[in-house]
């Protein structure tokens, strides 16, 4: 699924991310850890095609539309819960009926009913992360890139998300997190070191 070789990203002459060699097979899950500024988020942004590497190669076998990236502090669009959940489905030209059905199913499985009548501009960081996770997982992508997705979530909800992800065995997941995921999650591990310019 992912093949990285001598990937290097620098900004304003400063090296911000370097990965010597990395390979991840389809359906595998990898947890990336490392100190602040080691380039974990930059690596995910490069894989999501939001940034270009300065040098090296990065090959992903999944088509661009099947890669979904979730930011560390996610952004929710104006227009309510249903609009946010259906955004990616509209991008994939999913028919209206299927879209509505999947949105309702996701609201139920992610226990988001309480946000239906709520102004999303007033919700907390953790609640925002819950909706953003649901918005990413509703798309059932081949490659899911998560940047510290559980930082503000309570344990119960983290387990719920893990359960939902377990139902999608072919989905490849790359996740940054300062804490080791539970053993039951069976994640591979990549450690990134901080680079000096």
């Amino acid at each position: 699924m992912i093949d990285i070789n001598q990937l290097h990203v620098s900004k304003a002459g400063k090296s911000i991310c370097h990965v010597h060699r990395f390979h991840l097979d389809v359906g595998h899950r990898c947890w990336i850890s490392g100190p602040n500024g080691s380039g974990k988020s930059t690596l995910l942004r490069v894989l999501a095609n939001l940034e270009q590497p300065t040098s090296g190669s990065c090959r992903i076998t999944a088509p661009a539309i099947d890669i979904v990236y979730l930011e560390q502090s996610p952004f929710l669009f104006k227009g309510g819960l249903r609009h946010n959940l259906s955004f990616g489905l509209k991008c994939r030209k999913v028919s209206r009926d299927v879209r509505l059905k999947r949105v309702e199913e996701t609201i139920e499985s992610f226990r988001l009913q309480s946000f239906l009548n709520q102004d999303l501009r007033t919700i907390s960081g953790g609640e925002c992360q819950r909706i953003a996770l649901a918005r990413a997982l509703i798309l059932e992508p081949q490659l899911l890139l998560l940047d510290e997705p559980f930082a503000e979530l309570d344990l119960e909800y983290v387990e719920l998300v893990n359960e939902i992800m377990s139902c999608r065995p072919t989905m490849t997941v790359l996740m940054t997190s300062p804490h080791r995921p539970p053993e039951s999650w069976s994640f591979d591990h990549l450690t990134m070191a901080k680079h000096t310019p």
């Binding site: 999501a48 095609n49 939001l50 661009a64 539309i65 979904v68 990236y69 979730l70 930011e71 502090s73 996610p74 952004f75 669009f77 955004f87 990616g88 991008c91 994939r92 918005r135 990413a136 798309l139």
Partner: peptide
């Protein structure tokens, strides 16, 4: 917010 464009692209918007 910079994240508007990034989020749209990350969710598959052309």
């Amino acid at each position: 917010d910079r994240r508007v464009a990034d989020t749209a692209q990350a969710l598959g918007a052309g």
